[in-house]
Design a protein around this nucleic acid. Structure first.
Ligand SMILES: [Mn+2]
Ligand SMILES: [Mn+2]
Ligand SMILES: [Mn+2]
Ligand SMILES: [Mn+2]
Lengths: 220, 220
DNA sequence: TTAAATTTTTAGGTAAATCTAAAAATTTTT
DNA sequence: AAAAATTTTTAGATTTACCTAAAAATTTAA
């Protein structure tokens, strides 16, 4: 049984490992809003518990057990987010912090029943896949909107930035999950992207386009 | 902002104060499954924070702030219990431990929306009243079943014992909330009570009868 | 291939919530 | 009103999760 803190470290390491091969102390510290020295302390503890493999100065990797634990927390986080949005009418930009607390509630029964109550959802409100109770989930194949060429089209299926400001911005532009889009132009001046939606046309900065994930309908 | 531990202490003191006027260190220790020395430490801290009034060797009482905080936790505990039973199909004997964790989730918005989602319930699965968002709730007037005389009837509206064993026992006997009962006999030998239900007759020990709460339909 | 910059670890400490053992205060019993 | 029993507090430690400052290792740049 892990403390909330240990669980948060495992989750952070898991997410960092999705992007980089070897996860560095400083990266963990930044993510956890703590100091590198504290991270080193915790890594040693997690290593003692067999949750991470650790060689001094070489970063960490999750062990099988550690990875399973992390995935379980991710599962809980995402299921609670679905609950908050689908059942309690929260907006997609309001759920993260509460889910951050709820994910630590320890009851296998609770999560299985919640999953069922929600209809075994496959993705959370941000398009992220929800692992099933055995920790399995499809590795979704997204393309960043920024990578599309003029004329390409697809469906918004996720975001790679969960800040409230970003999500609110997308909402205002009508760029929400499930929306069908087509890139109609890329501005020479600043690289901003012109998007055609079913009913309107919007312009988004490169920065925004980087964090919108598209499931492509192939080239057009 | 209080820690989970502080919240649990406040809630325990609140519940003990419902029964006794001055709440003793040892009583808190027993309830919290900890040592009296630890309780003294925590009481001092709560007193420093203005959540309890404390005079050495004289026990504690909650301040207005302390009491409001405690009631808020009780509200959350009971709302989550309703959620677990009504929405996730938990039995009334399965919800306590999970609610014990959920009650500490800190989000005013979450609880208000949960309350609404549940239809603003007035009582939890054990018949205990749920404070509204201003901390107000009707002080329910119960009679213990043990206090009824032969011939008296009423409705089961609560229990004063939340252990799984006790609740399972009641369930097996068909003595659940809302059931109409009449005392048909009190056994001379062991004081056990004979109860008439709509469809059957059951016998319960004095110990069980002490913990069933009845809203009386008056004498009969 | 040194020197400089960066990353990571170690050393030593703090605060919260516990504990045990022993002392002090209060209450109950003779 | 003593003595005995009970309750409560104090003293001194421990564990967890942090911290700062400084040392050590690694990586990058000159
Ligand atoms: Mn968290
Ligand atoms: Mn999410
Ligand atoms: Mn609790
Ligand atoms: Mn209850």
């Amino acid at each position: 049984m892990q403390s909330y803190t240990e669980e948060n470290y495992l989750k952070t390491i898991y997410h960092l490992a999705e992007r980089t091969t070897n996860v560095q102390t400083n990266a963990i510290a930044e993510q956890m809003q703590t100091k590198p020295a504290s991270v080193t302390d915790m890594i040693k503890k997690l290593a003692d518990k067999g949750l991470v493999d650790y060689i001094k100065y070489q970063g960490v990797t999750l062990t099988e057990t550690g990875k399973n634990t992390a995935i379980d927390i991710v599962r809980k986080h995402r299921l609670w987010e679905v609950f908050l949005v689908d059942k309690l009418n929260f907006k997609w930009d309001e759920v993260h912090d509460v889910a951050e607390e709820l994910e630590h509630i320890r009851s296998v029964e609770l999560i299985e029943r919640l999953d069922e109550f929600l209809g075994f959802p496959k993705a959370d409100p941000h398009g992220d896949p929800i692992p099933d109770k055995n920790g399995r989930f499809a590795k979704t194949q997204f393309i960043k909107l920024i990578e599309l060429k003029v004329g390409d089209s697809g469906t918004i299926t996720g975001v790679s930035q969960h800040s409230s400001a970003f999500l609110k911005h997308l909402e205002k532009l009508g760029l929400t999950l499930g929306k069908q889009i087509q890139v109609s132009d890329v501005t020479d001046f600043d690289g901003s992207v012109e998007i055609r939606l079913s009913d309107k046309q919007v312009n988004i900065s490169r920065e925004v386009a980087k964090h919108i994930l598209i499931s492509s309908n192939g080239k057009n």
